[in-house]
C-alpha cells in the first residue's frame, strides 16, 4: 500500500521533482542504512555510499528507468556500490574477493560504535541479556516484527514476549548510561 505513494514519488523524480526526491530519501534512508551495515563493517562507508547513490539518482533523474520494485532496486544499487568498494581494497591486496557473509545482529550493533571502548561496552551490554532476550530484541527492533509475530515464531505467548522485552529494556537502560552519554543525545557538562 505504501508502494503506490513511493511509485508516485519515483515517477515525479523522473520529471525532476525535488520534493518527491527528498520524500523518497526520507522513506528509504534508514532501511538502506541498516541493510548497508549488514553488508559492510564501516558505517562511515555506508553513509558515503548512500549519499553517492542519491546524488547519482538526482544527476540521472531524467534518465531513470521505470521501476516496479523501488526498494530492491535501491538495495541492489547500494550493495553493488559497497561490494565495489570492498573488492577494490581486497584486489589491491591480491586476495580473491570473498562473498561477504551477512553480519550478525551483535556485530552490527558493535559496528555502530565508533570507538573501540564503546564497542567493548556494547559487547558487555549484550551479555547482560539472556540468549532468549537477545533474540527477541533482535526480532523486535532489528527485524521490526510485531509482538504477535515474534510469539508465533518462538512458539510462546505474546505476553511472554512483551514481558521479556520489557525486562531486557530495563536491564539495558540501567547499563546503557555510559554509552548513552557518548551517543548523540547528551547533556552538556
Amino acid at each position: 500500500m505504501a508502494d503506490t505513494t513511493e511509485h508516485t514519488y519515483w515517477n515525479q523524480l523522473r520529471k525532476g521533482n525535488r520534493a518527491a526526491f527528498l520524500s523518497l530519501y526520507e522513506s528509504y534512508y534508514q532501511a538502506l542504512y541498516t541493510f548497508g551495515c549488514r553488508v559492510s563493517t564501516d558505517r562511515e562507508l555506508v553513509k558515503d555510499a548512500i549519499h553517492e547513490l542519491f546524488c547519482e539518482l538526482w544527476d540521472r533523474r531524467f534518465h531513470l528507468p521505470e521501476v516496479t520494485q523501488i526498494k530492491s532496486y535501491l538495495f541492489t544499487y547500494l550493495k553493488r556500490k559497497l561490494l565495489k568498494e570492498q573488492s577494490f581494497s581486497f584486489d589491491s591486496l591480491q586476495v580473491t574477493t570473498p562473498q561477504p557473509s551477512e553480519r550478525s545482529y551483535e556485530e552490527v550493533l558493535m559496528d555502530q560504535q565508533t570507538d573501540e571502548g564503546n564497542r567493548l561496552r556494547m559487547q558487555q551490554l549484550l551479555t547482560k541479556l539472556t540468549p532468549g532476550q537477545r533474540e527477541m530484541i533482535r526480532l523486535r527492533f532489528y527485524e521490526q516484527l510485531s509482538y504477535e509475530s515474534i510469539a508465533e515464531q518462538l512458539q510462546v505467548q505474546p505476553r511472554t514476549v512483551y514481558n521479556q522485552i520489557s525486562e531486557a529494556l530495563k536491564t539495558l537502560r540501567k547499563h546503557v548510561q555510559v554509552l548513552m552519554s557518548l551517543l548523540l543525545f547528551f547533556l552538556v557538562r
Binding site: E26, Y29, Y33, H51, L109, L172, L183, L184
Partner: peptide, 22 residues
C-alpha cells in the same frame, strides 16, 4: 537513544546531517 542503539538505524541527528549534505 535506546532505540537508536537496538534498531541499528542512523541516529536522528546524524540523519539530519546526511540529509543536509544531500
Amino acid at each position: 537513544s535506546l532505540l537508536d542503539l537496538l534498531t541499528g538505524r542512523l541516529p536522528a541527528l546524524e540523519f539530519e546531517q546526511e540529509k543536509d549534505r544531500l
